[in-house]
């Protein structure tokens, strides 16, 4: 039983002599409820993989299968909230597009904003919120899709350390409460060790799976705990080797 199944994914950009092989035979199975982090240096095709899983792009070869009918929710490094809508209306839009009745929408929006601790800020415009609050609003909007699979593309990369720590706790809580499957892309190995059940290390140009590391540290975890640091050190070592290969 898998939630996301990638089988022999190849992605080529361009044609002829200028063609670039971005992903080479990437296979990955994610169990339902699993939290997987994809880690790699620049050019490993992490974002391309997420786009393929989200159905925003097609692979050149191989197959993508995602559990359930609804498309997976996608989050970016930028909140990508719609600046012309209030926070509430941003969260409501996926429900509106899915044809949910107005009364139910209101209740769902209130519940989702409560989940991300933004209950009081529903009537604000996105620009009135801080970076961390915007990212939480974006999370609420993605959760409104009512999807089981959450794809996150370095979602906390632009936040300060304290805000990021809090959002790690929040994401962990929401992930376990809602029994989500999360595929989380990051270049921050610590963050990967803090959050994931499994770290998948990708090579660069082309992207290939180099290694997988199980993370069995009991939750709730802390990013500054020695266990997390030990896992991060091991993965960092592998990442160094991979990056060093390109310098030779």
């Amino acid at each position: 039983m898998t939630s996301v199944a990638l089988t022999g994914i190849t992605k080529v950009y361009g044609r002829g002599p200028n063609a670039v092989l971005a992903l080479d035979q990437v296979s990955l199975d994610v169990r339902p409820g699993e939290f997987v982090c994809l880690v790699g240096a620049s050019g490993c095709g992490k974002s391309t993989l997420l786009n393929l899983m989200a159905g925003l792009d097609r692979p050149s070869g191989g197959s993508v299968a995602v559990e359930g009918d609804s498309t997976p929710g996608l989050m970016f490094q930028e909140p990508a909230l719609f600046p012309w809508l209030t926070v509430e209306a941003n969260v409501e839009l996926p429900l509106k597009l899915a044809g949910v009745a107005r009364a139910e929408r209101k209740a769902r929006v209130a519940e989702l904003l409560g989940t991300v601790h933004l209950g009081e800020f529903g009537d604000r415009q996105p620009h009135e919120l801080s970076g961390g609050m915007r990212q939480r609003a974006a999370l609420a909007r993605t959760l409104a899709l009512d999807t089981r699979v959450l794809l996150m593309d370095e979602p906390f990369g632009a936040l300060d350390a304290m805000t990021r720590d809090i959002l790690h706790d929040e994401l962990e809580r929401i992930w376990s409460e809602r029994q989500l499957t999360v595929v989380f892309v990051t270049h921050n190995v610590r963050e990967a060790a803090r959050l994931s059940d499994r770290i998948v290390l990708l090579s660069s140009r082309p992207g290939r799976v180099i290694s997988e590391t199980r993370v069995d540290i009991p939750r709730p975890r802390r990013i500054d705990s020695p266990e997390v640091a030990a896992v991060a050190a091991k993965v960092t070592e592998e990442l160094r080797k991979e990056v060093g290969r390109h310098g030779q």
Partner: peptide
């Protein structure tokens, strides 16, 4: 990015125009 976000939350075709492209 706004177009990608819009498509991801289910706005396609005419609704992408109505809810994302025109307001943007």
């Amino acid at each position: 990015l706004l177009l990608r976000a819009g498509r991801n939350i289910g706005a396609r075709g005419a609704s992408l125009y109505r809810y994302v492209i025109v307001p943007a």
